[in-house]
Design a protein around this nucleic acid. Structure first.
Lengths: 226, 226
DNA sequence: ACTTGTCGAATTGTTGAACGATCCTTACGT
DNA sequence: ACGTAAGGATCGTTCAACAATTCGACAAGT
């Protein structure tokens, strides 16, 4: 086969994925992620389908997709709600993070992977300097996503992407984002240094402590405000 | 709260999840899992909706669910197909298994968890004695699912459940199930012994070799039969 | 023989309306 | 305070219709 044509094979994935339902799901996912739809809020089929100019059936297909990603909670005969994770959910999310990210930091990164991680650290530091704590949170998520890619597994990348999207729901119910995000800006850099210097065991130990700290902060933020 | 009433909480999950679309998804999932629908086969909306007595819209919601579980492949304007995993998919599935099951075997099991694992080992041995290699495959999957529960995370349990369901698709394209399943009956027992005796590092090492072996067998089975 | 253009059947993508089922609220009666 | 009944709103599901797309076949051109 023609080598120039074979190069096109990479773009093939862009062809198939663009049904209306999936595009609607993309829109809703973004809205949830940015906090436009708040956790716990109900999403009316009628009003949203009307607002987006799609039929209820198509919207329901989109809802199914997001429900499977744990961003929406589908309650029979009551409608879909933006998911509001419980304290037990938070604990489980961190259980998964310890496994997935813990395995990731034990791998030796390629220079390209390392560059992506470093860029995320820098973004967080820049946002912190501007007191943009929402931006710090976003950069933080990119940081951990970049770490997850060290596993070299598309499925694990996708799992981490969903997991962090779910975790972002938790951030939206917190009243004080600065208190939560601030301590981790410098921890990100420290973790990067351990990964970069090729000490996987120390990196893993540091990550465990990192995640413990983050989880305790979140859980504590849940108790005064159930 | 009444302790007898609290016991009912476990059945609560059965209440909500019973829309027609989800029940249809359950049926199709079982059919795919048992090989009634072969990998690569196209599932017609019209004929299946008619056969099950549900509308096309409802069936499409079910298709979305299974597509998200990677059991169906949804190609725009061409319909849904039972997923046919590629060799690269197999490699990635085993990448994930090494991470998730590797983390699991390093945990100390409760007596109850150990009992479930042991039961799966026995089931595989019983099926092997009867030359029921399909049954061995099923017991094998239960064995690894039971191992995954050692992580103590509902999300990881679900991830492993989906992962093994996807792997079962691979089994269905193999021509010789005995050659693949037979060697692992006694390996299951050996791995159980290592877990039971509280030697997590040895168990993890053994599991790595176990998964390497399984992956190589599968990949090799793919090459003569693309 | 190989590629390209065109046509038509079959299937999916999406819509809009309809109706029963279920839930929530409110009001009522005991 | 508690159980109940009525009403409205919304979801669950179906159905029919049409547009959009794919696919195979066949003709035409090189």
């Amino acid at each position: 086969m023609n080598p120039a044509v074979a190069d096109l094979a990479r773009d093939r994935s862009r062809l198939g994925r663009s049904s209306t339902a999936e595009r609607v799901a993309d829109i809703l996912r973004d809205r949830i992620s940015e906090g436009f739809f708040r956790p716990g809020q109900r999403l009316s089929e009628e009003s949203i389908s009307e607002a987006l100019g799609v039929s209820r059936n198509t919207l329901r297909e989109a809802f199914r997709l997001l429900g499977h990603e744990r961003l929406l909670d589908h309650r029979l005969n009551r409608g879909v709600f933006v998911r509001l994770p419980s304290a037990e959910d938070v604990a489980d999310l961190y259980r998964v993070r310890r496994v997935l990210e813990g395995a990731a930091v034990r791998r030796t990164p390629t220079p390209r992977q390392l560059a992506v991680i470093k860029e995320a650290v820098l973004d967080a530091e820049r946002a912190a300097a501007l007191d943009d704590w929402q931006g710090v949170g976003t950069a933080n998520i990119r940081f951990h996503q970049a770490i997850a890619t060290l596993n070299g597994s598309p499925r694990l990348d996708e799992a981490v992407r969903q997991l962090l999207a779910e975790l972002r729901l938790v951030f939206h119910v917190m009243e004080n984002p600065r208190a939560f995000h601030e301590p981790f800006v410098e921890r990100n850099r420290a973790l990067l240094a351990l990964i970069e210097s090729g000490r996987p065991d120390e990196a893993a130990t540091y990550l465990d402590d990192y995640l413990d700290h983050a989880e305790h902060l979140l859980i504590r933020a849940y108790e005064p405000n159930p």
